[in-house]
Amino acid sequence: MLFPHPAAGPLRQVARRLAAALLVLALTVAVVYAGRDGYHDNAGGKLSFLDAVYYSTVTLSTTGYGDIVPYSNAERLVNTLLVTPLRVIFLIILIGTTLEVLAERTREQYRIKRWRSSLHDHVVIVGFGTKGRSAAQTLIGHGMARERIVVVDPDPAVVRAAADEGFVAVDGDATRNDVLLRAEVGRARQIVIAAQRDDTAVLVTLTARQLNSTAGIVASVREAENVPLLRQSGANAVITSSGAAGRMLGMSMLSPSAGKVMDDLLTYGSGLDLVERAVGPSEVGRTPRELGDLVVAVKREERLLDHDDRELGALRDGDRLIAIHRAT
């Protein structure tokens, strides 16, 4: 499971600490090599540059074999005032890296626990390809917060991309119970299934419906012959991607203007939008034709009535309108 990433990733933070440690080591080598005449080597001879590197390494790591030691008062003073503080800084960098890794793991576990305890009535999107991404963008365009959307995809690269976009993302096969449980599908309000294969969509629908008997499930399939199977598996609505695309192509050939209008309706945020909204207090008792929006249908309780249905009559409190209006 991945949450939205911070600005600097863990590898970048470790690289920064490693660069700082190497800088401290280089500074220590320079100090020791500059005062090499004040050091005594048990092997005899003056300190070479390699000896300075060796002494700096064992000194900063607090190993201290004792084969190279400062014997002049000046170099002992330099060790006290410069090398010792550098050793402390070096240890802080190493210990700080370890503590940061442990703290990050603890923080991540706490974040997941807090997220699980507070998450409910969210939306789970299975498959973050073109269809899943478009569904997420539409939900966000209608006011849903990104943290209320959980993405499930088997591709680790896609999961990382979803986390980079601000979504909570789960890596795994959504046909497995444990993967959907990590996405808290049991407490989800809606589930969008945008799998790449129809058979995968069927299995995911069956698994999701088993874990959540009340959530609304919207599934996408390529072939129309699989629609009844998806409905039997528990999907509330099934969108046929290939059939819809074919109808759009045919409509655009017969009437380019009609095809353009339909494409406008399907593109959220520009031109015309198809929305569902509640009937306002001032609209109760009026007919759909008397409203400012172009009403296509009215949802009354569990029934969906066309705008010209004789049973519809005047609008009632609690009705919901499916209407076309111009995007702002």
Rank of each mutant, 00 (worst) to 15 (best):
A169S: 09
A103H: 05
S72E: 06
R148F: 03
H307I: 13
G186V: 04
L60V: 09
A278L: 08
L294S: 12
K131E: 11
T63A: 02
A208C: 05
R105D: 10
A245K: 02
R316Q: 15
L181R: 15
G234H: 01
A169P: 02
L18H: 02
D153K: 04
V151L: 06
S270M: 09
P6E: 08
V170D: 01
I140T: 13
V179T: 15
R247F: 08
I112E: 15
K131Y: 04
M253G: 00
A157T: 14
V170S: 05
L102K: 13
L82A: 14
R12G: 13
I125K: 08
R114M: 05
L266T: 13
P156Q: 09
L18E: 06
E311D: 15
H5M: 12
H40Q: 10
K260Q: 14
I125Y: 00
A21T: 02
L321V: 10
H122S: 11
L99S: 04
M253H: 12
G246K: 03
G66K: 03
R303L: 10
E225Q: 10
Q232N: 08
D264V: 04
S233N: 12
V31Q: 03
H307T: 14
L211T: 07
F49V: 15
A15E: 12
G64L: 14
R17Q: 10
R133S: 10
I68T: 08
G127H: 01
G243Y: 00
A136P: 06
E311I: 04
P156Y: 00
G35T: 12
D309P: 00
T287C: 04
R187Q: 14
R146A: 15
L230Q: 06
H5W: 08
V31A: 13
F3H: 12
S241P: 00
M251H: 08
D308Y: 04
G216N: 10
G243P: 00
I93T: 04
R148C: 12
A19M: 11
G313V: 11
T62K: 13
V53R: 03
H142D: 12
R182V: 01
G313S: 07
Y268I: 11
V284L: 08
T28L: 07
A103S: 15
V202L: 15
Y71F: 14
I217D: 07
T98L: 14
L25F: 13
A103Q: 12
H307M: 14
V101K: 02
A174F: 01
